[in-house]
Design a protein around this nucleic acid. Structure first.
Length: 896
RNA sequence: GGGCGCUUAGCUCAGCUGGAAGAGCGUCGCCCUUACAAGGCGAAGGCCGGGGGUUCGAGUCCCUCAGCGCCCACCA
């Protein structure tokens, strides 16, 4: 036994499971004993690896993490129990902008500006902050029970990963996949950095669409154009129209005069112009609009950059606007145009999509910020597309394949330069002559001219550049390590759809390109957690569920179970409420108490099933249901359908094991007969122990805590996983018991219903008699074995009498069970009015059903076209229903 | 503008390859029966969004309309 102190036996087990005292103990113990450490397997096919999506160092565990990590832990724990070398790699992401902003804010509290501090000192502060405050989430993951291999923890800026990033950069550079160029980028004026297309979010905004006139330079007329960003007028360098637009045929090649600075702007023709939109003529601002930039490239219009890094008008614009912020400039331009009488019309509000920064939500400014580094994606996207199309990588749910493929299709080159201080410095150096040296190790001199006056590019790489290497950089790439050989490709990747493009697609591209293989075989995409009514969780709505608080209140097991139970297959959103977590807590408590009951009689040790001929029908049934549960759970997990797995476990444990089996077995469990007692305890313990193992990946703590009491191994963490198909013999014998079950269940429920109806105490014994029906009594005969003391106990009846009462007998209620009739004696309590009403109701529904089935059977098309077995079962159904109706009618007649 | 998803009980959702509508929570009764009141038993509650089609048969397949949500996107 692992625990130095023997675990408490049932007598000392409290009636309430106390997660708060159990869970932290095991969280520590598991790690302390190294049970999460994965050895490199001899056979690579025994490896099973998942890398954690590295949380930001600034991060705290939120409910989305809780979901993703729960799923990963389920996969990893099952793999580990299956005897695989299950490696779950932990780590964190340096999260460039996010972290820089946090530390900047901290410094500002002390009145320090990062620019005063200087780059090196600032970066030092960030590291210090990271050591002190970063990684709070790590402790929270432990508390959640995540079975991460902490011996292999990585950080996207640790020594090894810095090298991986540099090697990746250099290799791609050498292969021409990374280049330096000047073009329009997405600029965030608040964060003061460029962003990739993926870091930009389009949001609908109520803006304005202003149409105004550009007078032709020769004074012969004017051209009308429209814009949503009037300030860009300051940077206009031309007008464009569609080449085949007859309206403008005459003006192409002529010029218009800029109203503020008198420049002559050429009118050009370009295919990109949509002649059906607006006036069909468009002003061209190459330095501030992506399409315009491209038009300018084709037509030779010059770019004119009129904004500085903070989106204020710079000296390139007409003097009167200098220094205005972009929104003030917009207004100023409008007024100036109005004064000149050039304004034609204003549409306001004009709803259109505007790009926003994904971090700070400022409006993005398309801007020319000088030379930037780009990843050319053309060589990367084809193999990445193929991997998804040929099934090397499978997306769950499959519909994401299409989204992924079409995203790749439209993918443009990736801007990886970030004008930040915190991150991987771009490994490129420039000499005064403008030569570029790209190197893994810091060079001393220019590779072209030998100049020692070299300066490293001041920019850092996009955070996602290092994240994309995560599945292999964490395993030692670019070195040919044992870990890399064994654990790459990873088995699966689990993530929400929000970073499918930002991260997943890039891992696939870089994995294939740099590590020589796909990074993982399965991509498991889960939904986003919402509040109970499907609304986004947000502080302003006050509907945020804090997983740390939930763990403190209800336990990690409870939270894991309830989240996973809701995470259904193809769902886009997962509505979560505190109530459902409470439900998870209740389930943990149920498991605990069921175990108490079993362990009261079962002495511990390895449970062993009695020989089959000693098993009762209810016991056969339990074993069959258990086998079914094992198969269901495995089937669901194979499909990454965690909700179904949780559902199957819940149903089996609570409804079948507890509500039916335990209640039935109580009789035997307390039998005078020692062997009967032991048999019963063994069957229950056997099922319980295996079910604990089956539950363990979802609810690791409570299952470990109970499993220890069997005293059959060090830890359930490394106990064998129950596979479908084991114990086929029991399953086969149980099949008959399963078939008979509905009859038994219906019998018990029917008697209970009568009892409830007549408010008869659960303890009062109700005599029951089965009536000879017109037909044979297949159901009852087949289930004779069931009507032993334990089943009758559930119904609260003595063994059924064989002699039917005479027709004159009073005080009985008829119940119908699968076409059989039984009489339940309630004596003086009988209320004829109540009975008549009840029977009439039943008769109505029975007749309605008879009508439906008869119609079906009277249909020639059905008889001739439906499969024979369907027809046969419909006939059977009809007979049964008719018998039921007859019996009900008789009963009604007797009631008068 | 393109693509995807959703619409089933009061709420949140399951319903696989078409053959008598399910779960959890909530509600209403009755029970503190020595595993569990964080529990047990019972009950009520559904034109399966509208319309059309395929079929012997449609919650399930096809078309269409409506509403809600999401993703992508260079219509000024």
């Amino acid at each position: 036994m692992a625990d130095p102190e023997a675990p408490a036996r049932p007598a000392e087990m409290s009636t309430r499971y106390d997660a708060a005292s159990v869970e932290p103990r095991w969280a520590e113990e598991w790690i302390g004993r190294g049970w999460f450490h994965a050895e490199v397997p001899d056979d690579p096919s025994d490896a099973y690896c998942i890398v954690i999506p590295p949380p930001n160092v600034t991060g705290r565990l939120h409910i989305g993490h809780a979901l993703g990590r729960s799923i990963e832990d389920i996969l990893i724990r099952r793999a580990r129990m299956r005897g695989l070398a299950a490696l779950w790699v932990p780590g964190m992401d340096h999260a460039g902008i996010a972290t820089q902003v946090v530390v900047e804010r901290e410094l500002q509290k002390d009145g320090i500006d990062r620019r005063e501090l200087g780059r090196d000192a600032f970066v030092e502060r960030v590291w210090a902050w990271k050591e002190q405050y970063g990684g709070e989430i790590i402790g929270q993951l432990e508390r959640m029970g995540c079975s991460l291999d902490w011996d292999r923890e990585r950080f996207t800026m640790d020594e090894g990963l810095v090298r991986a990033v540099r090697v990746a950069f250099v290799r791609w550079y050498e292969r021409g996949l990374i280049y330096r160029g000047e073009r329009l980028i997405n600029w965030c004026p608040t964060d003061q950095t460029g962003l990739s297309d993926s870091e930009v979010e389009h949001e609908e905004v109520d803006g304005e669409l202003v149409t105004f006139r550009y007078p032709l330079s020769d004074g012969s007329g004017s051209v009308e154009v429209a814009t949503t960003r009037l300030e860009t007028v300051l940077g206009d360098t031309g007008i464009a129209v569609h080449p085949s637009d007859d309206r403008y045929r005459d003006v192409v090649g002529r010029t218009v005069r800029h109203p503020f600075d008198g420049r002559d702007l050429p009118i050009v023709a370009d295919e990109a112009v949509d002649p059906t939109f607006g006036t069909g003529a468009v002003k061209v601002t190459p330095a501030h609009d992506v399409i315009d930039f491209e038009i300018a490239q084709r037509t030779g219009l010059p770019p004119r950059n009129i904004l500085d890094a903070e989106a204020r008008v710079n000296a390139n614009a007409a003097e009167e606007f200098f220094g205005l912020g972009r929104y003030d400039a917009r207004q100023a331009v409008r007024e100036a145009l109005e004064k000149l009488g050039l304004l034609v019309r204003e549409e306001r509000p004009y709803r259109h999509a505007v790009a926003h920064c994904y971090r700070c939500h400022s409006e993005i400014e398309p801007w020319m910020s000088g030379l930037q580094w780009f990843v050319a994606v053309d060589g990367l996207k084809e193999p990445a597309t193929k991997a998804a199309e040929d099934g090397s990588i499978t997306f769950w749910p499959a519909r994401w394949t299409k989204a992924y493929v079409s995203w790749l299709e439209g993918l443009r080159d990736w801007n990886i330069s970030r004008q930040l201080w915190w991150g991987h410095r771009i490994p490129a150096w420039y000499c005064p002559d403008g030569h570029v040296t790209v190197a893994i190790e810091d060079p001393d001199a220019c590779a072209t001219c030998g100049s020692t006056e070299i300066q490293q590019d001041p920019d850092v790489l996009d955070t996602w550049f290092s994240s994309q290497l995560w599945p292999f950089s964490t395993l030692g790439w670019p070195d040919d390590t044992e870990d890399l050989r064994a654990f790459y490709p990873n088995a699966a990747l689990v993530t929400g759809y929000e970073i499918l493009y930002l991260w997943v697609a890039r891992m696939i591209m870089s994995g294939i390109s740099l590590a020589g293989d796909i990074p993982f075989r399965d991509v498991v995409i889960h939904g986003l957690i919402r509040d109970a009514h499907g609304r986004k969780m947000s502080k302003s709505l006050g509907n945020v569920i804090d997983p740390v608080e939930m763990i403190d209140r209800y336990g990690a097991d409870a939270m894991r179970f309830s989240i996973v139970r809701l995470a259904t297959g193809g769902q886009q959103d997962i509505p979560l409420s505190v109530d459902s977590i409470e439900g998870g807590r209740n389930f943990a408590n149920k498991i605990w108490n069921a175990a108490r009951l079993v362990l009261q009689t079962f002495p511990g040790g390895e449970p062993s099933l009695p020989p089959v001929d000693r098993l009762s029908a209810p016991q056969h049934w339990l074993l069959a249901r258990h086998q079914r549960c094992v198969a269901d759970v495995n089937g669901a997990l194979d499909r990454f359908d965690f909700a179904s797995a949780a559902q199957a476990l819940y149903r089996f444990f609570w409804s079948e094991f507890c509500d039916w089996s335990l209640e039935m077995e109580k009789e035997r469990l307390r039998s005078e007969d020692a062997r009967e007692r032991e048999d019963s305890a063994n069957v229950l313990a056997w099922v319980l122990e295996r079910t604990l193992r089956l539950l363990h990946p979802v609810m690791p703590f409570v299952t470990e805590e109970i499993w220890q009491r069997f005293g059959i191994g060090e830890t359930i963490v490394r106990a064998p996983w129950p596979e479908a198909g084991e114990h086929e013999d029991h399953a086969a014998l149980g099949a008959g018991a399963e078939a008979a079950w509905p009859f038994v269940e219906e019998f018990v429920s029917s008697v209970r219903r009568v009892r409830s109806q007549y408010r008869i105490s659960p303890r009062a014994i109700l005599p029951v008699v089965f009536l000879e029906g017109p037909a044979e009594r297949p159901a009852y005969e087949a289930t004779r074995g069931w009507f032993s003391a334990e089943v009758m106990r559930l119904a609260g009846v003595p063994a059924p009498a064989s002699e039917p009462p005479g027709p004159q007998a009073k005080g009985f209620v008829r119940i119908l069970i699968g076409g059989e009739t039984a009489l339940v004696f309630v004596g003086d309590l009988i209320d004829l009015d109540v009975e008549r009403e009840r029977v009439e109701g039943q008769l109505r529904t029975a007749r309605e059903k008879v009508r439906v089935v008869s119609a079906k059977l009277g249909n020639q098309g059905f008889l001739s076209k439906a499969p024979a077995e369907v027809v046969a079962s419909e006939k059977l159904k009809a007979e049964q229903l008719e018998r039921e109706a007859v019996s009900l009618q008789e009963q009604l007649d007797e009631l008068g």
